[in-house]
Computed example of a mutant assay.
Amino acid sequence: MYDVVLLTLGSERDAPGGCGSGGACCGAGPASAKPAEELCETPRVPVLACADALTTRGARVEMVTARSDAEIDGVLARLDGPPRPDDLTWPDADVKTRLVVATASDAQLRAVLRRLVRRYAPPPSRRPADLAANRTVPDLPPVGLLPLDPAHSGTHRDLAAQLGLPRDPAAVAAAVLDGTPRRLDLLRNDGGSVTLDGALLGAADDEGRPLHWRGRVEVDDTVLSTGDDPLLACAIGNAGGYARLADVALLTAPDPADGLVEVAVAVPVVARSRWGGRRVRLEIRRTRGRAVAVVPREGGVPFLDDGSAGELSRKRSWWTEPGAWAVWTA
């Protein structure tokens, strides 16, 4: 039978890698009257239920709450394979320890995957012959995903909902013990992080109206914006969480397992009527490819990447790692 580690990340204040502002790590919003620590304790109910379901099936279960990168790394070390002649740290393809990540947000799952990549990605100077030509990381160990919000209220569908993964703790336990790995693409970027779902670049004013910004957006050899056009948004999609901007479809059919990233920019275009009137329409330019680069022209551009907020002030490139990570599915 398997050893199963149920990993929960600590409060937003202590969460490694940054999980966004406003209590994003624990599902708390800025308007919440409860302190983050209290909200972070509440979701442990599904963790305990999942642990009970696993134990009933004979699994040896350990529950770990990590509040630092080092504590996450201590859990991930249990997935290491035997020593290699090249001394690289490599995942065990036949590991008997299975990992379940309890997540209150996609940003928390991203924090764990970022540490997996950091652990197993070999330096370019030591690239082994058994690493696929289109990858910079080996096949990462599959993870079980336990959403801490079973109902998942809200307008943004998290990655578990998009992938059709179970949310009930008992169903998650069954997938981890009896299921099969479903391999998915991973986006790495030159800032040292990863993207599982997608990123949305742009900002809005206090009344929710998108603000114009300028930047060069290039996907492989296709230029979506030279930096001269005003942009309202740029969507970078591995999955479909950022496929829409209000009522406008930015991405058409992002597929997290097709080896490609879908990118779209929204450009306001002024059109004149035959009677001399003017109206603004939104032009959506989109394409697919293996890599995308965004270069802001002026100032910083706010963005959300797997739910984590930031500001892009210099060139950032994302590239696809086909089938690099995996989730346990029934």
Rank of each mutant, 00 (worst) to 15 (best):
V101D: 06
V101E: 10
V101A: 08
A102I: 02
A102K: 10
T103S: 15
T103H: 14
T103W: 07
T103D: 04
A104C: 14
A104N: 09
S105A: 15
S105D: 13
S105R: 00
D106L: 05
D106S: 03
D106I: 04
A107M: 08
Q108T: 08
Q108P: 01
Q108H: 00
L109C: 04
L109G: 01
R110L: 01
A111K: 06
A111T: 01
A111S: 15
A111Y: 01
V112E: 09
V112S: 05
L113G: 00
L113C: 10
R114I: 00
R114K: 14
R114S: 11
R114D: 12
R115W: 01
R115G: 00
R115N: 06
R115P: 00
L116C: 13
L116P: 02
L116D: 04
L116R: 06
L116T: 03
R119P: 00
R119E: 02
R119G: 03
Y120K: 04
Y120A: 06
Y120P: 00
Y120W: 15
A121P: 01
A121I: 05
P122R: 00
P122Y: 02
P123D: 13
P124S: 12
P124R: 09
S125K: 02
R126N: 10
R126V: 10
R127V: 07
R127K: 12
P128M: 08
P128R: 04
P128Y: 11
P128E: 11
D130E: 14
L131W: 08
L131A: 11
A132W: 07
A132Y: 08
A133L: 12
A133Y: 07
N134T: 15
N134H: 15
N134P: 01
N134I: 10
T136N: 13
T136M: 12
T136G: 07
